[in-house]
Design a protein around this nucleic acid. Structure first.
Lengths: 140, 140
DNA sequence: TTCCTTGCAAAACATTTGCATGGGT
DNA sequence: ACCCATGCAAATGTTTTGCAAGGAA
């Protein structure tokens, strides 16, 4: 995982941003979890481990991590923003199934849907930059 | 369209809610537009027509309209909540393509994706209650 | 007459921002 | 030494809520 940290430092450097203990602590925290964490949860985890990071810095840093695609912002419409790490076992493209009873978030991926999406965009003269696909479900 | 108003009144009655001028004005406003309106825009439109509705009532009523599926809440991740009317020319199932350059919101529907989604849910022991599918695009 | 509904203003909430201080490079 | 980053607290923007007054049923 050293490579991820290296990449992050390089990314920062390229924009004249500085490699600070706070930014690294946040990155490392996001590397450790495959949950979908809210800002407050991330803040709490950091605090528990003795890493003091202010709320303002957390918010500012999450924007950076999103920009570099280390994490993805996940909004399921309940007013809480969650972050989905792209750093754990190299996961990238996936969408979410949200159980309305348990609140569980299950990831899914389907190649055919992927292709159909691209066709739809193309047909309209567009290309897809990003997408959100969420299924709100209940147990049968 | 009288039937929609009738249905609304019936829905209200069934929950011991009252049919008030404010609630009806909001419903009628949503029947007239096929845009994706924000709360402030709806409020403005109502005011322009001389219908005085307070912000609090608007928010409270939109929740009711969502519950009865007269409108759909649309969140495209820019921090603004929009409402998508289900009352205009009987549109129901559709998803959204959002142009990152112009901000345009284009509606789309694809039967195959629909089927694939159902299969995915089923395979995991779930049934789909609601879904969000958004493609963020740019012109080719 | 009974409650539900409204409107106002205050509260709540998440996020952003200004600014003085601190810290990478 | 330069200038970016941090932390705090204040500001922001949106949505929610408590409460007194008004209005359907």
């Amino acid at each position: 995982m050293q490579t991820v940290i290296k990449k992050f430092k390089k990314n920062l450097q390229e924009e004249n941003l500085k490699s600070t203990p706070q930014r690294l602590a946040i990155l490392e925290e996001m590397m450790k979890t495959d949950e979908h964490l809210e800002c407050e949860e991330i803040l709490l985890k950091l605090k528990e481990k003795g890493n003091k990071v202010s709320r303002a810095t957390l918010y500012r840093t999450m924007d950076i991590l999103v920009k570099y695609k280390f994490v993805r912002k996940l909004e399921i419409g309940d007013g809480r923003v969650r972050y989905d790490s792209n750093l754990v076992h190299g996961k990238r493209n996936h969408d979410h199934m949200i159980c309305l009873d348990s609140g569980d978030i299950i990831e899914f991926y389907n190649d055919k849907i992927e292709k159909l999406q691209n066709e739809i965009a193309e047909k309209n003269g567009y290309k897809i930059i990003r997408r959100v696909h969420q299924l709100f479900v209940k147990k049968v």
